[in-house]
């Protein structure tokens, strides 16, 4: 066996170990785009709330009947941002997956999704509870915190860089909880700016 042959063999083993245990086809570009969508969404929400302030501190029934429309539109914005981000990530990542020979819906991506969804679903339910109980100041901190936790747990099953994004989201979430009234700003920072920075780093590091 020639030296080059052995080196190739060792390289292919390392590649296989990574490819079999981690989903390494996450697209950095989709992170950048998700950040852009989030900033557009945050701007839309800001402009909307300028004209339609969210009513606060009312009995539950009244709250829902008065605030329903305002909240519904804010939720619609968040929902559109979320769906657009997921769709973009899916399309761009499946292209990379094809190139790397990794199935988009295979063992690694399933494990990744499962581990991300535990903190995310918990957070989602918790946020609905916060909303019902009228603790609206903690909704955005909770979003950032649970999203950060889900990224940290995801980082074991994809690029480990995701961990640092997760930790930053957690720090932002805790900061947002300390300074109520600036929720949207923190939201734009966490879901917009951080995603753009992280996505760019990942794009130059792995996408090519």
């Amino acid at each position: 066996m020639e030296e080059k042959e052995i080196r190739d063999e060792l390289a292919s083993i390392r590649n296989l170990m990574e490819r079999s245990s981690k989903f390494i086809s996450l697209s950095g570009l989709s992170g950048i785009l998700a950040g852009v969508y989030a900033l557009v969404g945050a701007a839309a929400a800001y402009l909307f709330m300028q004209n339609n302030p969210v009513p606060r501190r009312m009995p539950l029934f009244e709250f829902w009947s008065n605030a329903a429309n305002v909240l519904l539109i804010l939720f619609a914005i968040a929902f559109i941002v979320l769906m657009a981000s997921i769709l973009t990530a899916f399309i761009l990542s499946s292209r990379i997956a094809k190139k790397k020979g990794q199935p988009i819906w295979g063992k690694t991506s399933k494990i990744l999704l499962f581990n991300t969804s535990i903190p995310l679903v918990t957070g989602g339910i918790f946020i609905i509870i916060l909303l019902y109980q009228g603790h609206d100041a903690f909704i955005i901190p909770a979003m950032l915190l649970f999203y950060g936790l889900s990224l940290v747990s995801a980082s074991n099953f994809t690029f480990s860089d995701v961990k640092y994004l997760g930790l930053l989201e957690i720090v932002l979430g805790l900061a947002a909880a300390c300074v109520p009234g600036f929720g949207l700003l923190f939201w734009a920072l966490g879901f917009g700016v951080l995603h753009i920075i992280y996505g760019s780093i990942m794009y130059f590091k792995y996408d090519k």
Partner: peptide, 15 residues
């Protein structure tokens, strides 16, 4: 065989 073994080194189980 070597490839199968490398996969099983980093994953508890593989189907």
């Amino acid at each position: 065989r070597l490839q199968v073994m490398s996969v099983l080194m980093v994953n508890d189980r593989y189907d």
